[in-house]
Design a protein around this nucleic acid. Structure first.
Lengths: 225, 225
DNA sequence: AAAAACCTTGACCGTATGGTCAGTAATGTC
DNA sequence: GACATTACTGACCATACGGTCAAGGTTTTT
């Protein structure tokens, strides 16, 4: 894997005629590089020099925009959580369980495919015991899960789906989808595929939707009627 | 979390009367410390000094038994794979699908509870793209999975279980169980529990068994008859 | 066009890192 | 008990690390 990938935009910057890099775009550019580095090596294993190389910038440049490794890491983390929060869908008791669950699974899997680095960085943070996300876990994340859990419980009471522990169901969907990002090499080896492309995504999503819906007592047939 | 945990055995060693630490037991002791360190920080993030502290030994001692960080890491990895291979159960077409799957799920979950460090170290290795396990993934692991997949396919042909992609089913079981080790903080926060103790293990195992068996078209009721 | 603000950079700093080494102690073997 | 072997350790080394700085550009504001 090539780490140093010359960023044309950035290199042209030096040639007096800047491609007007919208305010903050260099910061965004650094954050992308940092996300990849932190995702692969974790906080302690990440190297500021490698972040700089990935961004095709001199190292002090990174420190100009983010005063420390820690602050850079937190900025990356915050950005990920933010983007995940945006994707939090609205589900209510009135929603069709099968449709809602299917949408949730497909969305999570697409996230795993499109930004595996984000998923891996989060995984690293969890593995270390969430030193920087304890608060998030115990507030926003918990609240969100409890909200969905409440809806799932209502579905159960209405007899729309089988009795299942809602929190564990959500956790299972997370694990089953995120694993395709975090353990991508393993998945690809096991499925004998070269990359996590759209066909693999579709097949995987179809499998997961069918399997999990059936686990919830929602036979796929009953959905087409 | 305390990193330095004085090992009584090791400290007594200096007091002329060695507790005859069976040949290789110091190596084993170091490997345990190293496993925890590598699991938490990954290879690049791990520090030899911290391994030494965890083992309550001077750093050069570690280098005496393992000539480099890389070699120590490989020794730990090898040990984990070995222990996982030992746990590879025997399943045949004649086995009862429900029983076999249940045993598999419970065993994997117990592993996650009893040695989360092993699971996390493996996760770190996967996240980095398995630089040291590519070969293992493409040989033993793949062979093992294909073996089980074959049995599952036979079950399907015999109408014993629903049609499901066997490889993806195995991957899902791995993800659903391993996640309780790797994302333990998240799971505990979400379930509002303090630790991953036996009650949590049992509840989780019961949930997973029921859910996954139902996903395979094996209603839990049909098993008691 | 001058001033202010912002951005970029090569050279550098103190410290932490993986690893070494010479010397010492304990143990095994005859 | 002598001697080789194995095990341990304080002090040390070269390098890599996160981070700084002064000097010089570039852009924006007035």
């Amino acid at each position: 894997m090539k780490i140093i990938s010359a960023s044309r935009i950035i290199h042209m910057v030096n040639k007096t005629h800047r491609e007007l890099p919208a305010p903050g775009s260099i910061k965004a550019h650094i954050l992308v590089a940092a996300k990849a580095e932190f995702a692969q090596y974790g906080f302690e294993g990440a190297r500021m020099q490698r972040v700089a190389d990935r961004a095709a910038l001199p190292k002090p440049n990174i420190h100009y925009h983010f005063k420390s490794k820690q602050q850079l890491y937190l900025a990356v983390l915050e950005r990920i959580i933010e983007s995940w929060n945006l994707a939090f869908d609205q589900v209510s008791e009135a929603s069709d369980p099968a449709e809602a669950l299917e949408a949730f699974i497909r969305q999570k899997l697409r996230q795993a495919q499109q930004d595996p680095a984000a998923s891996r960085l989060f995984a690293n943070e969890m593995i270390q015991g969430a030193p920087n996300l304890k608060h998030y876990l115990n507030t926003s994340m918990r609240a969100w899960v409890q909200d969905r859990a409440k809806v799932i419980k209502q579905w159960m009471q209405a007899g729309k789906i089988q009795n299942v522990d809602p929190e564990r169901l959500i956790f299972l969907i997370w694990s089953a989808t995120q694993h395709y990002a975090d353990f991508q090499v393993q998945a690809l080896s096991l499925l004998n595929r070269a990359e996590f492309d759209d066909p693999v995504l579709t097949e995987t999503a179809d499998f997961l939707v069918t399997f999990i819906l059936r686990g919830c007592g929602l036979a796929p047939d009953s959905r087409t009627t």
